[in-house]
Design a protein around this nucleic acid. Structure first.
Lengths: 232, 232
DNA sequence: GAGAATTGCCGCCAACGTGTCACAGCCGCT
DNA sequence: AGCGGCTGTGACACGTTGGCGGCAATTCTC
């Protein structure tokens, strides 16, 4: 699987069905999952395994989710996404005050939760070893930490999307990526749009690469499949 | 020619009006629709037809939508979009409605639902990056990640189909593959067409292999059976 | 709040890929 | 040798694909 040592997510819920569901989907996206069924186990696991993210059900047997969140906060800055059954605004405020980075109300869609997981991890990506890397490919360098890219020595004035697209491509330099894969990686789960959006973005990216002085062929089209950043 | 019958969507709802509405719109977007009016029928259809996606109303006569969803989950990876009634009514089943890839509350906009259908299917369609492997057979090398093939050191300018065909052959180098098997692997399960398409594709592939300098006999014909890539 | 930037989408067009067909050649069997 | 059935081949037409320019909606910025 990808990311043998991908980000580790701790799932805390007393329903096994939910743990299974989240584990399945998180694994599919390259996360490693550890699970706890109650608050005490959660804290124990968190201390030992130092997960990159905690998904925490508010309602837990024994130690309450709020308590767990508070304790987690006290001893580390691990980001937390809360699962709550209540929609009332009160819980939201309380939850956020306690330091949850995001919250999702049940019933939730897997898509939405995955989107938030990714978003939270991106936000706290400063220490994430995987994400803060300078990728180099010939005359192209992409610094995902500073979100800066250079081509032939010239800095590239890229928009957010263009940068994410280029970063995705350079991260898998030499491989053909389908439009679906690109949408998933650069646009995110929660994108509801057509595939041709990729074409447009590639067009704009190519234009800027060319304006920076290089061949426009750095991103090649693989007809019927997708795009590939040529390994230089 | 592809997807004469596009992705199959199973719509489960007890209101005929909704089935009709969704069927009309899904058809217009190139999906094939099958419908069930209650939970048991849904499960039966799902098992038999193996749809690519299920749109499932939460409130069903007889077997409940949640049950159906759970059962579907248990026996396959089929993604599910859940239709639920108004948010207030959701509260009654709060915390239980899990396992759907996405959910939409009634009344819903058709546009939005269509967008989500597309998004969920796109998400499922993304295959793993890790299946990227370089196969080697004598002077032939096939890189499924970069989708590049070389013969005698010369890169082969292959089309999508030609590449997939060659990849299939090299994956089973030395074995005879029937036209049916080749169609299944390289064209896809949803291919509608004659067997002789394989002949044409093999012809083109042979021509390109020869143009790259090698013997054209690398792919040999097994009369009455199929084709085989000789192990070198 | 106006202007600029971003970004998704549409329509057009050219190029490409691919299935089909008809026909010729080849193979194996009797 | 002759025959029937596969298979190779070339031509062709059709559908598909992706680049391009432009537009409109949304978001950002000052």
């Amino acid at each position: 699987m990808r990311n043998q040592s991908g980000p580790v997510v701790l799932v805390v819920d007393d329903e096994q069905a939910i743990i299974d569901l989240l584990e399945y989907n998180l694994n599919r996206d390259g996360y490693r999952v550890i699970a706890a069924r109650d608050g005490l186990e959660a804290l124990r696991l968190a201390r030992r395994e130092r997960p990159d993210l905690v998904i925490l059900d508010l309602m837990l047997p024994g130690l309450d989710g709020l308590e767990v969140c508070r304790s987690l906060r006290r001893e580390s800055d691990t980001p937390v996404i809360m699962l709550t059954a209540r929609v009332e605004e009160v819980d939201r405020v309380v939850g956020l005050e306690l330091g949850a980075d995001d919250y999702v109300t049940k019933p939730f869609s897997v898509r939405e939760l995955m989107a938030r997981v990714k978003a939270v991890l991106r936000r706290t990506a400063t220490q994430d070893l995987d994400t803060a890397v300078v990728h180099r490919n010939g005359a192209l360098s992409v610094d995902t930490g500073a979100r800066e890219a250079c081509f032939e020595g010239n800095p590239l004035p890229l928009s957010r999307l263009e940068f994410d697209l280029l970063a995705t491509l350079v991260r898998h330099a030499g491989l053909v990526l389908s439009r679906e894969q690109l949408l998933d990686q650069a646009w995110g789960y929660d994108y509801y749009g057509g595939l041709r959006a990729v074409d447009s973005a590639v067009k704009r990216l190519r234009a800027k690469l060319q304006a920076a002085g290089g061949d426009p062929i750095v991103i090649s089209t693989v007809r019927g499949v997708g795009y590939r950043l040529e390994r230089l």
